[in-house]
Write a protein that binds this DNA or RNA. Structure first.
Lengths: 344, 344
DNA sequence: TTGTATGCGTTATCAT
DNA sequence: ATGATAACGCATACAA
């Protein structure tokens, strides 16, 4: 290992003190332009690379932001990450990313790693398995900004960024009702997650508003992946009478459902109108195109990061007193899969 | 800011020297079990958190691995990242991820950031825009392991992990020929990228093998997104005679093509047989299911990371002498979109 | 098995 | 506008 060039070497070369070099490198205003230039010339000439280890040791900051997501290889999550990366990059921050794989234990381990890595802030979307958020207490205690997104801890006193899942599901269900649907099946994921719990609420509210009865047999739990359609449809085909509407909490799964409905000879939307969720690419590519809820992942990531950054310079404060929830706009995008009244 | 607990505090509390505490914490064998236990008790009692800044400063390691990808929100790339995260996590390493957004300039900036952040190793998939890899020279000079994946720098002397794109495209094209296709259109991305250049080669080789002439008018350049189908199909419809085979370098785009072919009244696979690439979820959800090349992203990520880790403990060495290329197996998955001989 | 002394490269404080 | 000096908290060479 060759000897590293330090600010001492630069200082000696230029004929100033290390302090001045440090200041110049950090663009401190109180350094004469001339000396600054000389210093930067020497930096280039000598191939100096700042040692962030030492800098971190002094400043107690890493410029790293931690992100914990359930899965990296999810359409929605990777859009969120893309948005976060953009905002972080613009602010000169790095992103340290890890996935919980929906496991509470892994999430805890990841949170610990993040803490020990001394991230300056942490963004989290909870695992479906997660029962409490005690593992984030060290962050709160140390005043490290912590922000939840999408899958948030509702009554934790921590800020969360979400879309209004209740309203979105309400709109989706109302839309189906407007199309004349009388029996609407709702397919959703693990109800421990706020996202799905809220959508179920929205579904129920819509029924209420329209004076329709809630029928528990029309609720189907699923892991919502692209293979789940087969099982879901086999359940649906056993319902009597058959439903005439289907609201699936995820586009890939909705696409899979449509596929299997077709295999059963069911026409979409004539026999069963379908609404998905996410506005994934897939909703625009299957036949018929799927009516869906636009879930602004990229924007959510960007906003979450920008919000976190705001709190980065307030040490010891964290977000504790900032108990609010930030809700993003989402819209129902109506496409062919749900439009019964074609003649209208 | 409260005073941090250091190994000095622990040492004082237990009645040993800081050195012993340091050794105990690092599970140095030469520490008596009893003292070790006392030390760990004190650690718990006093709420000690190791200061990695100081540790890094001494060891000159961050335990951070940098990853630069063209886009985070891509199906394939996020699978790769998932695989990398798993392998890194198991090895106690963090992942710092950034995206180049296909821009050379951004990639350079990201590489610089990674270098200044002192990542212990770097994994890169090149931007389509990238013209040279001089911006990685600092890594090579310092002996920081550098590994390319998927989109690699062919003649750089750096190790790359890829699938055999030539062979995959050869197989795909041969399959179409076996189905009786005589005029096969190939849709591909920026030819500066090894991935697409190689696939074009494979396509040509297949024609050669079958004594068919290469017709440049059957090659369509595209950015391969899910909206590209419209333009591609409008080009195809102008060809005379119409082609009877279509090999698209990406499933989302293939799906979009199928959609627009159908709108034109073309039957798949009877009139035109279609093969995609990637084995994305979408290939299993559109009608007909798309024949495609399974592109093992997760495995690629895992393998790339494991390979990098191997080189982490060989300072000053890098991967310079290790000029080989690691090629992953990929298979053609035959589905309905390409099977002309249904009666067989 | 344990301890002493020192350096890692920077930034912050205080002084000039 | 610049400089001297002292931390920051740990790991390691060397000593015992």
């Amino acid at each position: 290992m060759e000897k590293e060039i330090t600010i001492y070497d630069i200082a000696k070369d230029v004929g100033v003190s290390p302090t001045t070099v440090s200041r110049a490198l950090n663009h401190h205003p109180a350094v004469h332009e001339k000396t600054k230039k000389k210093i930067f010339d020497a930096v280039l000439k000598m191939g100096y690379q700042s040692n962030i280890f030492a800098a971190n040791l002094r400043t107690k900051r890493t410029n790293n932001i931690g992100v914990i997501v359930p899965r990296l290889n999810s359409n929605f999550q990777s859009s969120v990450l893309a948005g976060m990366e953009k905002a972080a990059n613009e602010a000169g921050l790095n992103l340290i990313i890890s996935q919980s794989l929906e496991s509470f234990e892994k999430e805890k381990a990841n949170a610990n790693t993040m803490f020990n890595s001394r991230v300056d802030g942490l963004l989290v979307s909870l695992a479906s398995d997660t029962e409490n958020i005690d593992h984030y207490k060290p962050f709160l205690r140390k005043g490290i900004p912590l922000l939840f997104f999408d899958r948030i801890a509702e009554q934790s006193g921590c800020t969360g960024i979400v879309i209004d899942n209740i309203q979105a599901a309400l709109n989706a269900t109302n839309h189906l009702i407007e199309q004349g649907c009388k029996r609407i099946v709702h397919v959703l994921g693990n109800i421990k997650i706020n996202v799905y719990a809220d959508r179920l609420k929205g579904y129920k509210y819509a029924l209420l508003e329209n004076e329709m009865l809630f029928d528990p047999s029309l609720i189907i739990l699923s892991d919502l992946n692209e293979e789940a359609g087969e099982e879901i449809i086999s359940k649906i085909m056993k319902l009597n009478p058959l439903p005439d509407g289907l609201f699936v909490s995820n586009d890939a799964c909705a696409a899979s459902c449509i596929r299997h409905l077709k295999l059963e000879g069911i026409r979409i939307p004539e026999d069963i109108a379908v609404v998905g969720f996410n506005n994934d690419v897939i909703s625009r590519l299957v036949e018929p195109n799927i009516t869906t809820v636009n879930y602004p992942g990229y924007e959510m990531g960007e906003l979450a990061m920008k919000n976190l950054i705001k709190h980065l310079d307030k040490p010891n404060e964290g977000m504790l007193e900032n108990t609010n929830k930030i809700t993003l706009r989402s819209d129902l995008i109506i496409r062919k899969s749900s439009k019964k009244e074609i003649s209208l």
